[in-house]
Design a protein around this nucleic acid. Structure first.
Lengths: 147, 147
DNA sequence: TGTGACCTTTACGTTAACGTAAAGGTAAGC
DNA sequence: GCTTACCTTTACGTTAACGTAAAGGTCACA
């Protein structure tokens, strides 16, 4: 009961996305969503909901709201202005480079975590059976070692 | 003249990492780096430099300083306390999940950018030769389409 | 000797992204 | 008619991560 639905209350969206209603009102203040009103109450459309989802995705990777919105609004640009299209293509390239750098950083961090985990499991094994020497056989850490 | 070097001034590091000296002093205030002093002046070790590099890597993927430091300090944990090792393994798993979610989000955003770029190039092509129909042949966007 | 190029400390200012009251309206249900 | 569950607005508070003076020390160099 949510994906065929086409209008949402503020608390519905808040609980769906695990954010406060304040957060959503804040997004409206900033103009990132524009719910219509029914009396006083905000009624959010499926489009509003989608924008919120995208904003939160941006947040998870460390974008500011403004940055997320900039990306989201790239979809909205009409293809009628040649100059704007050029500017948009440049922005896309810029963003892509940043995101690719992030991918590299993420990969590095994840392999760092794997490394620490391996050390950690070795230390634990060593402590449990009293030996501080290397383990028998391979580093059976349960996780594949980035083959 | 930097990788065999073992001590650094504040402005050397600042310019190397393209941050302000204020930023580095701020990191010291927070205890993330602990340069020794020569008179009044801060002298940073290669270890300090490495920590700064890691902090900035964390920043690029949207971690707070505290989060970066938490990850960095995982390396420092000695394997002597069984209970701590367990806690550390849990933390690692938590972090890994978040980072993996970030990877998914990044992938999605990058393919969204690709999509917008394609639309954009099509629109530009259409405008330039006056036709709003589809382009001749394949979508020759210069970029491989995630083969 | 003065003028840059660095370095220092102290301290108030700023922005983003909300949190947190406070005070009140409305509709459902007992 | 009263409570409970939502909803509203207005508005001040908070945290992170620095920015930005202001005021001054030190060393080399012309």
């Amino acid at each position: 009961m949510s994906d065929t639905q086409q209008s949402f209350s503020i608390s519905e969206l808040a609980s769906e996305f695990s954010v406060s209603t304040r957060t959503i009102r804040f997004y409206e203040e900033k103009g990132f969503v524009t719910p219509r009103r029914e009396g006083q109450k905000r009624i959010f459309s499926a489009a509003d909901r989608a924008r919120i989802r995208l904003i939160l995705r941006g947040k998870r990777i460390g974008l500011t709201l403004a940055e997320s919105v900039e990306i989201i609004d790239m979809y909205r640009t009409d293809g009628s202005d040649e100059e704007q299209l050029g500017a948009l293509l440049e922005k896309i390239d810029e963003r892509r480079k940043a995101l690719q750098q992030q991918q590299r950083d993420l990969r590095d961090m994840l392999s760092a975590l794997d490394e620490v985990e391996t050390l950690c499991r070795q230390a634990r094994g060593a402590e449990q059976n009293g030996t501080s020497e290397s383990q028998r056989g391979a580093a059976a850490s349960g996780r594949p070692s980035a083959a």
